[in-house]
Amino acid sequence: MSSELMDALTVLEKEKGIGKEVIIEAIEAALISAYKRNFNQAQNVRVDINRVTGSIRVFARKEVVEEVEDPRLQISLDEAKGINPNYEIGDTVEIEVTPRDFGRIAAQTAKQVVTQRVREAERGVIYAEFIDREEDIMTGIVQRIDSKFIYVSLGKIEALLPVSEQMPNETYQPHDRIKVYITKVEKTTKGPQIFVSRTHPGLLKRLFEIEVPEIYDGTVEIKSVAREAGDRSKISVYSENPEVDPVGSCVGPKGQRVQTIVNELKGEKIDIVRWSKDPVEFVANALSPSKVLDVIVDEEEKATTVIVPDYQLSLAIGKRGQNARLAAKLTGWKIDIKSESDARAMGIYSPETSSKLFLEEQKEQDE
């Protein structure tokens, strides 16, 4: 151990942000264990590292007593006064017991402690960086694949993409570049562990934020997302500015913006609908692309009955109920879809009593 160690610790403090004093105290604590282990000593000792020269000294700490019962921990008053006449019963005497070849053990121990602290600091930096990126999107490179995870390099660390978070319509190969959504960052004994997803609705939301400037600057707001990854998604959007078309902004010129996202998600179909605080209008929009004749709302049950033309029933429900299911997720309302003829037979629908909203819309469409 020498002044070179102190210089190295100073550099570490600047580069890694690890306090020099913190490392020295850790080395001193480690040296106490090393001393007891290597020299079979059980007494109470203190290790002192000179902050300038880096020299190390070991001191045995003994309590001053009238009658010594354990010489490893105690010293007689007469013997203590031989060292310093001012010692009294109950004082602690420090006697240097630095072994001759302790320097080699000290250097080894210091190296281990510094390496460990540097590793911990680097892990801490990575954790701090990625904990702020939870619920964010990053581009990574597929490194390797096993039965449980795809390991995706995010630069400083490998993230885990579980099988359950992989899109069913995708195949992955090493060196593929993929966009992933960070779902969770955990601090473990082996360092930070990052879990990512390709199926999370948040991925779709972040992709729209990247592709649509109006969403990024807050002019258009994404209100809700419903997704069945790899197959179909619905997203509701809204703008306070009446001059801004939120749906058109997301679609983009000639559909370029939404097409970029569809390509990233390997052909996943995306319905973009206008959000409304009126559940009648919102539920009708959410069932796009089907035409809706009326929406009957039950506020208490947070449920709706939707009437559609007979020829639109299968479109409204969707393949395996997908369209209705996604619309319910998007709006937060239960949706029961009925054909016009069934609704008429049940006495719950007639054009004369239909919501004014739909009569007006129908008129506009006819014109």
Rank of each mutant, 00 (worst) to 15 (best):
E66W: 03
A106E: 05
D91I: 00
T109Y: 08
G140I: 03
D132V: 02
R104F: 01
N84E: 15
E120C: 06
D78H: 02
E94T: 13
L73Q: 13
V113W: 03
Q74L: 07
T109M: 11
A128G: 15
V68K: 03
V58I: 15
E122F: 00
T139I: 12
G124K: 00
G103Q: 09
E129H: 10
T115G: 02
I137G: 00
D78K: 10
Y127C: 02
E134I: 14
A128L: 09
V142Y: 08
T139K: 04
T115H: 02
R61W: 04
V142N: 05
D132A: 08
Y87S: 06
V93T: 09
R144G: 03
Y87T: 07
L77W: 00
A80W: 00
P99V: 08
K81D: 01
S76V: 03
E129L: 10
E88K: 09
A60V: 11
F130P: 05
L73M: 11
E129D: 11
Q112H: 09
G103K: 05
R57E: 15
V142F: 08
I89G: 03
A128S: 15
E134G: 06
E134A: 13
G90P: 12
G90V: 03
R123F: 08
I137P: 03
T109K: 07
P85G: 07
E67Y: 12
E135S: 13
A60G: 14
P85R: 13
R72G: 15
G124H: 02
D91M: 07
V125L: 07
M138W: 01
E63K: 14
K111L: 12
V118A: 01
D132T: 09
A128P: 13
R123C: 06
G124W: 00
T92P: 10
M138C: 05
E94N: 14
L73N: 13
P71M: 08
E135L: 12
P99S: 14
A60D: 11
R72D: 12
R133V: 10
I83V: 05
M138E: 13
E88Q: 15
A128Q: 14
E88N: 13
D132S: 12
I141N: 06
D101T: 15
Q108N: 14
E120Y: 05
K111M: 09
V68R: 00
G82Q: 03
T115I: 08
R61A: 09
A121I: 00
M138I: 11
G103N: 09
E88G: 12
E88P: 07
E129N: 10
E66P: 02
R104L: 00
E69K: 14
I126K: 01
I75N: 10
Y127W: 01
I141D: 05
Y127K: 02
A60K: 11
I89Y: 08
G90T: 04
R100V: 14
I95P: 11
R61E: 15
R104E: 01
T139A: 06
D101K: 14
I89W: 05
E135W: 08
E67W: 03
E79S: 10
E122A: 05
Q143A: 03
T92V: 02
D101F: 13
D70I: 02
E79Q: 11
S76A: 06
G124R: 04
R61F: 09
R123E: 08
F130S: 02
D91Q: 07
I126S: 01
Q74N: 13
T92R: 05
Q112V: 11
P71F: 08
Q116F: 10
